[in-house]
């Protein structure tokens, strides 16, 4: 377990800012308790300072996980967000997409969001923008990237992809052994 280097922090922040924009400050500067990012076995954990200090005393091979896993670094140094970060993304998300009940299962099996499954979408969402996907009763289901801006979606046919799938809560079951 170690703090992130500057490049690593930059990679993580840029990825997070894609979903929550300037709300990223609220993750770093929390009023309740100081939180920090820690890297352990290529995974980035968002952890309160008190648990981090407890975790220091655990030997590196014995430490399985701590705090919330936000994602992992690939061998080439790119950062990939995991669905475990969804709690924080959903809390601070700037752009949201709600999907109809008939599209929920499709999305939870790892498919992209189609236009006919789209319930609502935040107005003025640009294209290639990180969005959090909710069910119609505001339960966060995952996140993805928009393929078109909100204005452009109106002209599309019902089977066109609106949001590219990146992560969904179904991964808690599908990738249980590699996720955390």
């Amino acid at each position: 377990m170690r703090p992130l280097t500057e490049e690593e922090s930059k990679a993580v922040f840029e990825k997070l800012a894609n979903y929550i924009g300037k709300n990223l400050v609220h993750l770093i500067d929390r009023p309740d308790e100081p939180y920090c990012f820690r890297l352990h076995k290529d995974r980035v954990y968002y952890v309160s300072e008190s648990s981090m200090r407890l975790g220091v005393s655990v030997a590196r091979p014995s430490l399985i996980s701590l705090g919330t896993c936000f994602g992992k670094f690939s061998k080439s140094g790119k950062f990939k967000l995991h669905v475990t970060s969804l709690d924080y993304l959903a809390q601070y998300a700037k752009y949201k997409v709600w999907i109809k009940p008939n599209g929920e299962m499709s999305f939870l099996y790892g498919n992209h969001v189609l236009k006919n499954h789209l319930g609502r979408i935040t107005e003025d969402t640009p294209e290639h923008q990180g969005v959090v996907v909710y069910s119609m009763n505001d339960v966060p289901l995952g996140f993805g990237v928009t393929s078109r801006s909100t204005v452009d979606t109106r002209k599309l046919d019902p089977t066109a992809i609106i949001v590219f799938h990146q992560a969904d809560v179904g991964e808690y079951l599908r990738d249980e052994d590699t996720l955390f």
């Binding site: 703090p3 500057e6 922090s9 930059k10 990223l24 400050v25 770093i28 100081p34 920090c36």
Partner: peptide, 19 residues
Amino acid sequence: FEPTEVSADVEKKNNLALL
């Protein structure tokens, strides 16, 4: 690397500066 138990305040400041 920075030490693991660096003060949270310092780390917060660094992160905000980076932001």
